[in-house]
Design a protein around this nucleic acid. Structure first.
Lengths: 190, 190
DNA sequence: GTCTATAAGCAGATAGAC
DNA sequence: GTCTATCTGCTTATAGAC
């Protein structure tokens, strides 16, 4: 029932190319060629190359920030919140493997929206940090260096997009379970 | 006693700029401007922009692969090997925060050396995977999905360069201890 | 909605003077 | 070792025909 518009095609195709070579190295001719049209025709649907990047990154960044706030505000244990965050990252990465690459690697090429993007990211990270801090206070999380704890988990979650598309034998549900166990309880056998 | 040559200056300055904007978005004029010379003067020291990228990436990639082979071949427990790998990443990231960015984000812009780089990375990852597998067999590591286990640790280690330069209050020794504990034993308090 | 033609500027790299 | 001048080709984007 739902028809993919030309504009959506352009965004998806661009995201795929941006993942392979990065925003700066992809030309409007590259994008057009992937769609079997000429570069000039792109401008009937989008206003500029920057416009494409903006549409790829901002929607995903807003989704992360909004969902993080929901998790932060929910009244469950810290461990449950962490599991929800892990599930959130896996869900978005499965649905948007290409856009995730731009979010992680091409955000610095944003122009007008750069400041807004950085605010979204800051909000996300602050809420994440605070969840961990409250977990330490509540005796659920070990009292290690907060930044190292945050960084360690976040690095893995942010890198998911690099890794998910290759392992299609692993479904999101099982990956969420595996990854939660490893990130929360480690890998050592006792 | 040791004097930094112009060539070394060019490589360091380029690495710093590549970290900020990525290889493709940095021009020879940008690099020259950072060194207060003209773009044409760069070519007296290096042969091309590609040449700079090659020198940044390959030396670090070889160091990782060689040191990983040493760790792999050493006769210590799996946990000790993992701690050595963590220490290796922290050591290299502290010494080369800019070059690490190119290694992680600009390797796809390598031309003649791309195949060689991919071989080095493959060798590194295969040895890492095998260390984990042997740890499972020896009963030191939990029998979870090997790829998830490998990916989780490697993502954190590969992202260190994004995070280390900002936290200069944390010394390498302490970071190694903290990160080892978190990656190996998790964050949950029992 | 796509095309051809083209503008205006920037890219990497070289030649040759000093 | 650095400079100025310059080549050649590629970049994003627009104008206007169909």
């Amino acid at each position: 029932m739902k028809k993919e518009t030309r504009k959506e095609q352009i965004i998806q195709t661009s995201a795929k190319l941006f993942k392979e070579k990065g925003y700066a190295a992809v030309t409007m001719r590259d994008i057009a060629k992937s769609l079997d049209i000429k570069a000039a025709s792109l401008y009937n649907h989008i206003s500029s190359k920057q416009d494409i990047l903006k549409m790829i990154i901002i929607s995903i960044a807003e989704e992360f920030t909004n969902k993080m706030l929901e998790i932060y505000s929910s009244e469950v244990s810290t461990i449950d919140k962490l599991q929800s965050i892990i599930a959130l990252h896996i869900d978005i990465a499965y649905k948007n493997p290409y856009k995730m690459a731009s979010l992680n690697s091409d955000w610095m090429h944003l122009e007008e929206q750069l400041k807004y993007y950085l605010e979204l990211r800051k909000s996300y990270e602050n809420n994440f940090r605070d969840i961990i801090k409250k977990g330490v206070s509540a005796g659920e999380i070990q009292n290690k260096n907060i930044e190292v704890t945050l960084f360690s988990i976040l690095s893995t979650l942010r890198s998911l997009y690099l890794w998910i598309p290759q392992k299609e034998d692993l479904n999101p549900k099982e990956l969420t379970k595996n990854l939660s166990e490893i990130l929360i309880d480690g890998i050592r056998k006792h």
